[in-house]
């Protein structure tokens, strides 16, 4: 069992403090990320779960400053990478970070690769650019990397174009590119959403294997509770731009504190339940993020909401267990029995 407390390194790899991002849109300012704080240590995986529009991808992209400049109306808070503030860096300095320090994997392996360049060019380019390798050395290293991400017959595959590979193979190439410069932090934004279940498991195994082996920190962003539950050390649940609950993976689902986490958990059909089991649907729909109403964003859908929830925004507080944070005035505390829930 991976116990995050036993990690020997105490220095945090990534520390995000009170990050808030407002985006411009035709309908007005979108409060995409609101007051998000978390810490990630080297060798750990933080899973961030949220529905579409919860702000998880905006947050991930903003860590690498990849949001289009014109879209960002306001950005507050600090992002420390190995103790160094990176949110104020110039584009040039950031470019030097991307690759050797932070790398990112996107959802769609079809569009993440350039269709007119061979795999070899795309994998060896960062090697030549960041590490100053010669063309031959970069090619040899690229073959090693493709081997490492499980591409069979890498020596021959390397001269192929992306369209000659299947979706799973493409995602492996994308991972290989992300690993070229040995990043200390890997941000994986929905890395398996576009893939089939059997391939999803291969890619997740690969990612967690590489992450352990290289002691990378990983941010695993997904909408699939099952993916984070099985792969992350810590899980952060995001709703309407805020982190509503953060806890170690092995305790979160046993003692859920935030009603949204509970509702999300209960609304998912389970493979072990009998057919035609009535699902506990969450009423309503996720809120619009422009002009957010005061109070807790989940209050309109929350079965436990009180007067206060509609007026005040609940602050993030510590639950009984260490390392378990939540943002709710009236947390759900009853521990849940978790007998082989899938």
């Amino acid at each position: 069992m991976r116990q995050p407390e036993h990690m020997e390194s105490n220095a945090s790899l990534l520390q995000v403090n009170n990050l808030s991002i407002r985006l411009n849109s035709a309908a007005g300012l979108v409060h995409a990320v609101e007051d998000v704080s978390f810490t990630l240590k080297a060798g750990q995986t933080l899973g961030i779960v949220g529905e579409s529009g919860s702000g998880k991808s905006v947050m991930a992209r903003s860590l690498m400053n990849l949001l289009p400049r014109r879209a960002v109306a306001q950005r507050k808070g600090s992002v420390l990478l190995s103790g160094r503030e990176i949110s104020t860096l110039s584009e040039r300095e950031l470019q030097r970070l991307r690759g050797p320090d932070i790398a990112m994997i996107f959802q769609d392996p079809m569009t993440a690769l350039n269709p007119v360049l061979t795999i070899c060019v795309q994998v060896s380019e960062p090697l030549q650019q960041h590490l100053g390798m010669s063309k031959q050395a970069a090619r040899a290293r690229a073959i090693e990397l493709l081997d490492a991400v499980g591409i069979p017959d890498a020596v021959n595959r390397i001269d192929q174009y992306p369209h000659q590979l299947s979706g799973g193979m493409r995602q492996r190439v994308v991972i290989a590119i992300a690993l070229t410069c040995n990043p200390s932090l890997l941000i994986a934004d929905e890395p398996t959403t576009a893939l089939d279940v059997t391939v999803q498991r291969q890619i997740l195994d690969l990612l967690t294997g590489l992450q352990k082996e290289r002691r990378m920190g990983m941010l695993l962003i997904t909408h699939d509770l099952g993916v984070v539950a099985s792969r992350a050390d810590f899980i952060a649940v995001m709703y309407a731009g805020r982190l509503v609950e953060v806890a170690p993976a092995n305790t979160l689902f046993k003692s859920m504190q935030h009603p949204y986490t509970e509702a999300l958990f209960n609304s998912i059909p389970r493979i072990n339940d009998a057919s035609h089991t009535r699902l506990q649907a969450i009423p309503g729909r996720p809120p619009q993020l422009h002009n957010p109403a005061p109070g807790c964003a989940f209050a309109p859908r929350c079965p436990y909401a009180q007067q206060r929830c509609h007026r005040e925004t609940p602050p993030v507080v510590q639950a009984e267990q260490a390392g378990h944070l939540h943002a709710c005035f009236y947390p759900v505390s009853a521990p849940v029995a978790l007998g082989g829930v899938r």
Binding site: P152, A229, G340, R342
Partner: peptide, 22 residues
Amino acid sequence: SIPDMDPDARGQQDKIPLLQGD
């Protein structure tokens, strides 16, 4: 291949061999 929701059950499903290839 379905990811397990219970982190304590990690490793149980690994008994079933993973599908190789695409």
